[in-house]
Structures are given as C-alpha cells and as structure tokens.
C-alpha cells in the first residue's frame, strides 16, 4: 500500500504495529502488523466490522494507547516509548479529537469549550482563525450557550470547532455522527470535508457508516486487526460493496499480509 502518499507528505503513520491484549488462552490480537500512512491534508476514513481493531488503531495513532510492537509517528515525531507527560504535550499541540458522545464540559459555554484546548495549553486563540472556524460551523449566535442548551448537531459542531481551533496536525474523529440524526450528521460531515478542502486540515475518522465514509478522500478497511483493503474517492455504494465483500470472504491473514 505504499506509494499512495501524496506529494504533500505524511501526517501520521504506523510501522508494523501489533497490539495484543492479555496472554495465553485469553490472548486477543487487536492489531496485526498494521502499517498505514495517512496523507497530510486528506480526509481518511477507517472502516471495518465490530472488533476489527479500527478504534484501537485510531487510539494508537492518537497517542491514547500504547502499541505492543512497532512504531507510531505523528509527522516526524515518534510516539512509541513516550511517557505520559510527553504524550499529553503531544495531544495538546498536534492532535485534535472529536468524540461520538460530543464530550463537552457542561460547566463551560460553547465558546469556552471551543477554546479549552488552547486554554489548557496556555495559548491565546488566533482571533481571525477563531472567527473563520466559528463562521464555518455556523455557531456565531450560540457562543454564550451552555451545552445543555444546544441540540446534538450543534454540540457536535462545537466539538468540531474545538478540534479545529487549535490547528492540530491531525484531527481524530471517533464515530462523530454515531449519535446524530442523518441531517445533523450530514452537516457535520460536510463541515469536516470542507475543513480538509479549504484549510488543508488532516482528518482521520473511524466509522462503520458507509455514507459517512463516502465523505472521505480515502477509506481503509480493517478486519481482524489487519488492513484488508482500501478505496480512493469512495461513494456510499462502493464502500458498501467493499464491506459486503470483506464480510463474505472471511478475512485471511495471508491476504492482509500479501497486500503489503
């Protein structure tokens, strides 16, 4: 799968990553020798059935989880072997998150939630950039509201703005539309795609929804902890076909390994 890197370079990559939980009989291999490169300024979706390891892969990429073997990089920074303090520092400066459950602080207003990562890092928001982000997500008139006063879609847009405003190298979105109705979901996805197109933001999204994946530039398919396939410029139909294919053909290790 090498050779797919765009001229713009790599935002994050894994090299022969293994993730193993437990030992002996209870051993579960969540990731088997995964090597992926995620292009800078691209919107990449990671798909796969439940238990395929897609969330584990994202957590390892984001520095939230350690790997059993192999190496993880964000830009040129090697995450593997970093201590908690350095990882925290990295998450502050280079990584943004969007969660399925929005995860906004109920005590803060929308504006305070958006600038929270910057506040934590002790940085001042860039006013012009902040305004751009706010206008893009269309939250101008909701800034002083608390999360409980916002709809689900609005909350998730606040979460998107929070991830964007710090201008991280990569934004990781974990099932961002999982808790939204289809209309709100489409808004959020459209907004994510725009931020890639217009601002050159790198976004990695984990999803099991083919429609959501169709917004991405590239889809990586995982099964049983290994990369089994990928698609460029996907549509919902091509993604669905691919998925059916993966589920029908029991994923084989040899296939995954052969593809490397």
């Amino acid at each position: 799968m090498t050779g797919t890197i765009e001229a713009t370079g790599t935002a994050a990559r894994t090299v022969d990553v293994w993730k193993v939980y437990g030992s002996g009989e209870a051993q579960v291999i969540a990731l088997r020798s995964v090597s992926v490169e995620l292009g800078k300024g691209k919107f990449t979706a990671i798909m796969g059935p439940s238990g395929s390891g897609k969330s584990t892969l994202m957590h390892c990429l984001a520095g939230l989880d350690s790997v059993t073997r192999g190496e993880v990089f964000i830009g040129d920074t090697r995450l593997t072997g970093m201590n908690d303090k350095k990882l925290t520092e990295l998450r502050r400066t280079k990584v943004g998150f969007i969660f399925q459950q929005f995860n906004l602080l109920p005590t803060l207003t929308a504006e305070e939630n958006i600038t929270l990562p910057l506040s934590i890092a002790g940085r001042k928001p860039d006013k012009a950039w902040f305004d751009t982000v706010i206008d893009t997500v269309g939250l101008r008139d909701r800034l002083k509201h608390r999360p409980t006063q916002l709809s689900g879609g609005q909350q998730q847009r606040v979460a998107c703005a929070r991830a964007l405003v710090a201008r991280p190298e990569v934004i990781f979105a974990d099932e961002p539309t999982g808790n939204l109705d289809s209309k709100s979901g489409a808004e959020v996805l459209g907004f994510l795609r725009n931020s890639v197109r217009e601002f050159g933001q790198t976004i990695v999204m984990v999803t099991h929804d083919p429609v959501a994946a169709s917004y991405a530039d590239r889809v990586i398919f995982l099964a049983d902890g290994a990369v089994v396939s990928e698609l460029f410029e996907p549509t919902a139909d091509t993604v669905l076909d691919k998925l059916k294919n993966i589920e029908v053909n029991a994923p084989s290790l040899t296939k995954a390994e052969a593809q490397q």
Partner: peptide
C-alpha cells in the same frame, strides 16, 4: 469519568 477522560485526551496534564 468521561469528562475527565476527554480533558486528558485534549491535553490536560495529570498535575493539572
């Protein structure tokens, strides 16, 4: 718990 997890994820240090 989840809120604390999110804060840690977006870069709040242990000491903070």
């Amino acid at each position: 718990t989840r809120e604390l997890g999110m804060l840690r994820a977006i870069g709040l240090r242990r000491s903070q």
